[in-house]
């Protein structure tokens, strides 16, 4: 007796499966995670770049913000948590502060994504700036509270400005990565 199998809707087109496809797909979807992971690692190396210390949180925050707004499936909360721990281990600041900042940026982006994903780029940029100001202010307050004295706030201002300024570059990178790296598997 033969079991009934429904005929394919569009004969000839099958989603490819198998080990190769799954590895390819896995690597492509972990690009955002790996990007933040390696940016943290590389920027903690002694490159002697000017503003290197402030650049790391700036790039991390902008990347997490963008992926959380547009493709939260590739930047889940757990991944942000792991990246936060990693950044905290490499950064020698007060423990947990970077982690908390990253989770807050992720949370804000996630909760507002239905609005944020549709708005103009410049408004998105502005929203990111406001989020960065809030998060950096929180970081400054936490640092002061944990160090029990007033920490100089100019580096924090610099960090915010750097994050705000590097946002368009990261946005371009994000669009390119999303179009040609993450999604390419389904098109080719």
């Amino acid at each position: 007796m033969k079991t009934f199998t429904p005929p394919p809707i569009r004969p000839g087109i099958h989603p490819r499966s198998g080990l190769g496809y799954r590895i390819d797909h896995g690597v492509r979807s972990s690009v955002p995670f790996l990007f933040v992971f390696f940016v943290t690692l590389v920027l903690s190396a002694p490159l002697n770049l000017p503003g290197q210390v402030e650049l790391m949180p700036a790039i991390i925050m902008a990347t997490i913000f963008l992926w959380s707004v547009f493709v939260p499936a590739l930047m889940p909360s757990l991944a942000v948590f792991v990246l936060g721990i990693w950044a905290d281990i490499l950064s020698f600041g007060p423990a947990g502060v970077m982690l908390l900042m990253m989770l807050i940026v992720h949370g804000v982006a996630l909760s507002g994504r239905y609005t944020l994903a549709r708005v103009n780029f410049f408004i998105l940029w502005l929203v990111f700036g406001v989020v960065m100001v809030g998060v950096t202010a929180l970081q400054w307050v936490l640092c002061c509270a944990l160090a029990l004295h007033i920490v100089e706030f100019l580096p924090f201002v610099f960090e915010t400005v750097l994050a705000f300024g590097s946002f368009p570059v990261l946005y371009t990178g994000f669009v390119w990565t999303y179009r040609f790296v993450v999604n390419n598997a389904d098109r080719a």
């Binding site: 909360s77 948590f81 905290d88 007060p94 423990a95 947990g96 502060v97 908390l100 989770l103």
Partner: peptide, 12 residues
């Protein structure tokens, strides 16, 4: 996770 992060700050 945010609660855990606060816990990490306190632990640190």
């Amino acid at each position: 996770l945010i609660l855990v992060a606060c816990g990490v700050i306190l632990l640190g």
